[in-house]
């Protein structure tokens, strides 16, 4: 699958706040890109499976994010809800190349909004 992705450079890792997140708007959805305390970067679609909560606005701790709407906790690694809660937030491919964050977009996520 990953070889079908279009990798988009969204700038330096430092552009994302530590223990925080920023969003990338694609043609079809919004992606939340997280930076954890240990300098890793993860990405999920910016909506929780429960009530479409904007995960990028949550508190980031360890490799988890707590949804700002109802405090459900999701793994940044797998998107899986933690504890007694069910559900899975959609994971997005992301990697760091020489200090820049690259997000893997599917062809349908690609659109004019990224050109220029």
């Amino acid at each position: 699958m990953t070889d079908m992705l279009n990798w988009i450079d969204v700038g330096p890792v430092e552009g994302i706040p530590l223990q925080g997140a920023r969003t990338l708007q694609t043609r079809t959805d919004r992606i939340a890109i997280f930076r954890t305390l240990d300098q890793q970067v993860f990405a999920l679609l910016d909506r929780c499976p429960h009530k479409d909560g904007p995960l990028a606005q949550g508190i980031v701790h360890g490799h988890f994010v707590t949804c700002p709407l109802h405090n459900m906790v999701f793994s940044l690694e797998t998107g899986q809800a933690q504890g007694p809660d069910d559900g899975c937030a959609a994971k997005v491919e992301v990697k760091i190349i020489e200090g820049s964050v690259h997000v893997g977009l599917t062809p349908s996520q690609m659109g004019k909004r990224h050109e220029g």
């Binding site: 706040p17 530590l18 223990q19 925080g20 009530k51 479409d52 909560g53 904007p54 606005q57 949550g58 508190i59 980031v60 700002p68 709407l69």
Partner: peptide, 19 residues
């Protein structure tokens, strides 16, 4: 420490159900 605040206090506005 902004990253330790709930979103409302971090951006000084109240988040609504639609974000």
């Amino acid at each position: 420490h902004a990253a330790s605040r709930f979103i409302n206090e971090r951006v000084h506005a109240n988040i609504q159900k639609d974000g």
